[in-house]
Every structure is written in structure tokens, then in C-alpha cells.
Design a protein around this nucleic acid. Structure first.
Lengths: 294, 294
DNA sequence: GTTCCGCATGAATCGATAG
DNA sequence: ACTATCGATTCATGCGGAA
């Protein structure tokens, strides 16, 4: 075993196995961010033996306890989850989980909303299409690492319309003030046109990976990785599926640790990471792409 | 007392008083829809006496019990609420309330998200601006009245027509334009393709309202009134504030029952309703107004 | 008559200060 | 130690006067 308690052999790897067995192999407080989209209740019952909604909390609590152990005190845990409809009602396992995790010592710091523009089609007599999911933000301390400037967004259209009317001199002055950052990053834009985002995320649901169906778009973990970690930090996804979190880490220069029970998903995840590593500029983030086209 | 158990004297009235005392005066199962935005914990303490977050559930449960009694079996209860941040954490009183109301016999049928485009500004080290609120949908039965066609929205081309106007402005913010449109008059979109909305509602909060700030825009109760009632139905708002729900009812041809503890708000509410009744076409819904001007 | 711009105004939250 | 108050921070929106 290596000097750092066995962390090295997991770094930048997709480990095949049940996270309930793999998590205990990680040392204490070695993770900067946990971001994951666990198997929804009863959704992927071939994985993890099929978790019934009524048993979901009981199943998840030992995992969240381990996640708390391996997370650094300054770290964050982002849980992307949504309760199923059971018997005509929203099931309560998610909100029960929040209460139980607080009893474990987690702080329920915030709840981000992920708005899915393009939702699965369908029609029911008593509800509309479900177009949002919870991104629960848990921390161990009231103070934690957060880099808000990394995810700033352009301001509203009204302001842009006004700025467009600025004279050439005004524009030149603004540009010079920022310096000649030939960056493609949003953060390098003129400061006055940037604003901090809100806790409602409008993610592009379009998947640009033609080969594989990613369960969630790269933009989602990427946003939280930029927000809660620095380059070189370690990101853990205990249910990494087809490797989306790992892909985001590679693009952003973070280290990843991925666990996945399903051998086929492990294969797909490793393949995606390898492709991403060998052709790092093939795919870009949606916002960067839009920026380039503008 | 009238033949229908005392309902008549409340119909189309703003009654001044504490809803805990007024609700028992209503007969059983006489209401088609309850839609309300109760005083948030500790937010308007100068007006409502200030309900501490730790006591919020205990305070609200007797009220929800009465609401269940007066609601028709086919009716709905829409509760617009959002938990405060207390000591750096999201407080749990809302999710605890959901669990307790289920114990009362309510069905937690759905949770709609109200996305507030223009949210209160501010910057903090550990969170972004809060841009969403919950619209909890409770029912007494699995089957209830729902008129989905009444809130259908146009799809397809007007989104593309608007998109051309976007420059480098982000699509994320503009999603609000193409989401679940509020207050759209379906008649104006005859011949166009209509789609059902989702459970994410986009709207701007009204600010700088001359006649005192409406705590929530008319479009919000109007949307649920159209969705869950027919013309002539009875809508109850036990915390009607400045009368927004009553205004929506007048515009939509529904009967309203409003309770309000604060005498000043009662006065404002009655004034708004009177103005709405005497000049029914003076104000229109925001979306319709924008549509007309376009 | 339009368009443009200044300005006030929010269901907010944190951290410091005061009692 | 615990609670109450206050200043600082920040941005989408609509009104009203100006160009």
C-alpha cells in the first residue's frame, strides 16, 4: 500500500465494484468533491439489486456515511436526484434522506435546481412532464471551498442591448481594462457583462457523444467541479455510470475516482476517458462552443 | 345562516381575520381549489407576528387540517413556499411539513418549481441568489380535477423566431422565454402547434407595483386556477395578502374567498378587486400584454 | 412618437456589532 | 453565549423623463 493510505491506486481510475465495498478502501478526508447521480429508485433494478423506493434511504445512508468520512472538511457533496412517482404520489425518500443525512452530521447547505429543457415526452391525466431535478448540496462545515467566479455568466439581454450602443472609444476602453486575455473562458470577458448565476441551472440536455448515452450531460458535473474545486483536486463519483464525471475531470484538469458496479458501464467509461485523453480538443463544453460561434 | 352552511357570506369577499378562526366557519367540502402563499417563516414578522422556522410546522398543521376539511374531494391545494436559510443551512421545515401533511391524509401529488427570473440580488461566500420556490400540489384523492388544455403553450417556431435575436447572450437565461408560458390566451394561438407545459414555471416577480407590492404575481395563481378549476368554481386563499388570488379569480370568472389578518392588506385587496371589477380590461396578464405589444 | 437611459425596488443572506 | 439589528452586497425589471 502506498504512503498516502491507498489513494494512489484509485486516482484517475474507474474501479469496477460496489461502492459499498470500495469506499472503505479510501483513506479519510482525501476527496475535495463528491458529485454523483446515483441509480434512481427502481429505475435500474438490474444494478445494485434494484433499490425499492421504500428501502432507498436505508440503502443509501451507509454510503453517505462513508462519503462523509472520505470527504475533506472543506469539501462538498453534490447529489443529483429526483423522487419517483409511486402510486400517484411523489415518493418521500429524497426528503427523508435529507433529514437522515443531517442526523449523520451533513449540512444541507443548498438545493440547486437542474431545469431540463428537453424532457422525456409523455402525457398523464394528473401531472405534466417532469422537467427538473434536485442537486442537493451537502457540506461538512459551514465554510467550504467555493469559486464563484469560475461559473459566472453573461448578464441579461437588456444590458447587452445597451452596451451595444457604446461608442468605439468606450468599447476600446473596456477591452483594454481587462487586458489582452485571448482566453476562450467566460471568466475573461469584460467584467461588467458578467454576473453570478443563481441556484437554478439550465443545462443543455443535448448529448454530443453519439456513441454512448450518458445518463447526465457533462455540463452538470463540470459546473459543480468548476464551482467547488481547483485544478489538481480529487473528485469522486461513486456511481459513475458511463464515466461522465471522469470526462469532465479530464477536461478541467482535475483528478477523478470513479466506481461502477456494472462491467459494461465500466468498459464504456474507460473508453470515453481514453478517447477524451487522446483527443482532448475534440469535444468542448456547450457554452464554450456557443461562445466560439458568436 | 344560509342554506348552504354559511358559505354565501364568504363568497367573493375578503374577510378580515386570522384564518385559524375563519376556516372553521366554512362548511365541509365546499372549495374547489386552495392556492396560497403563506407568510414565510420570520419574513414578515412585523405584519404576521413572525412564525419562527422551528415552530413553522406546528403552526401550519392545524391550518392544513382545516383546509383538508373544506376542500372538495376532487379539489387541489397548491402551496407556494420556500425554506429560509438558517445558520448557513436550508431549514427543514418545508420538507418536514410535507411528511406531516401526508400523515394528515394529504397526497403529495406533485411539486412544481417556480423559477423567478428576477430574484433578489446579493452575494455571499457560500451560495448564489435563490431563484426558485416550491409550488407543492396536494390532493385528497389520486383522481382530481385537472384541465391541462387550459394552460397549453405554443411550441416550436416562436422559440426560433426569438432565438435569432440572441447574440452572445446566454441561452440559459433565455430558457425562461420558451418554457411554460403563463397566461397565454390559447385563442390567440389557434392554428399554431400547442404543447403541454412542464412542471417548471418561469415568471418574473412584479416589482415596483404602484398599488403596494403584490407578494406574488397574478400569473402564478391564475395558472393554477385555470389548471385546476372551471368557471364558477370556488377558490380559497387563506393568506390572501394584497388580494392577488382574488384578482385572478375575477379575471377568470371564478368565485373567491380570501382571508387576511392585516387590516391594511385587507383594504388594499378590496381596492384592487373593486378596481378590477369596475375596469375589467384595464389590466391584462403579463404574457398577453407582451403578446399584444409584439 | 419612438428609443434610450437613470433609478428605485424587491419572500435575501452574511458577518459584524450591540445589548 | 445567545439574540437582535444593521450595513454591504447585487441584478432583473418597469416606470418616467430625456434625447
Amino acid at each position: 500500500m502506498s504512503v498516502n493510505g491507498g489513494l494512489d491506486r484509485f486516482i484517475n481510475q474507474i474501479a469496477e465494484g460496489d461502492c459499498r465495498e470500495l469506499l472503505p478502501q479510501l483513506p479519510h478526508e482525501c476527496i475535495d468533491l463528491v458529485v454523483t447521480s446515483p441509480p434512481y429508485a427502481d429505475q435500474r433494478k438490474h444494478i445494485y439489486g434494484g433499490v425499492h423506493p421504500d428501502e432507498y434511504v436505508e440503502w443509501f445512508l451507509p454510503i453517505s456515511a462513508e462519503l462523509k468520512r472520505v470527504l475533506k472538511p472543506s469539501g462538498s457533496f453534490v447529489l443529483n436526484i429526483k423522487e419517483r412517482v409511486v402510486n400517484g404520489e411523489r415518493h418521500t425518500y429524497v426528503i427523508e434522506l435529507i433529514l437522515k443525512m443531517r442526523e449523520q452530521g451533513w449540512l444541507w447547505t443548498e438545493e440547486y435546481i437542474r431545469h431540463k429543457k428537453n424532457t422525456y415526452p409523455g402525457k398523464w391525466p394528473n401531472r405534466f412532464r417532469d422537467a427538473w431535478e434536485r442537486c442537493l448540496h451537502f457540506t461538512k462545515q459551514k465554510q467550504f471551498k467555493m469559486f464563484q467566479e469560475a461559473v459566472m455568466v453573461p448578464m441579461g439581454e437588456w444590458r447587452h442591448a445597451r452596451l451595444r450602443k457604446l461608442s468605439d472609444n468606450d468599447l476600446r476602453r473596456d477591452v483594454s481594462r481587462v487586458g489582452s486575455g485571448f482566453g476562450k473562458r467566460v471568466a475573461n470577458w469584460i467584467g461588467r457583462e458578467l454576473a453570478y448565476p443563481t441556484n437554478v441551472l439550465h443545462m443543455a440536455t443535448e448529448c454530443y457523444n453519439r456513441n454512448h448515452a450518458a445518463t447526465f450531460p457533462v455540463d452538470l458535473p463540470a459546473w459543480f467541479i468548476k464551482l467547488f474545486t481547483e485544478p489538481g483536486d480529487v473528485v469522486l463519483d461513486p456511481f459513475i455510470g458511463s464515466g461522465t464525471t471522469a470526462v469532465a475531470c479530464v477536461r478541467l484538469g482535475r483528478k477523478y475516482i470513479g466506481f461502477e458496479w456494472n462491467p459494461e458501464y465500466v468498459r464504456v467509461a474507460r473508453e470515453r476517458v481514453a478517447q477524451e485523453t487522446s483527443q482532448p480538443n475534440l469535444y468542448t463544453f456547450a457554452e464554450e462552443r456557443a461562445e466560439y460561434e458568436a
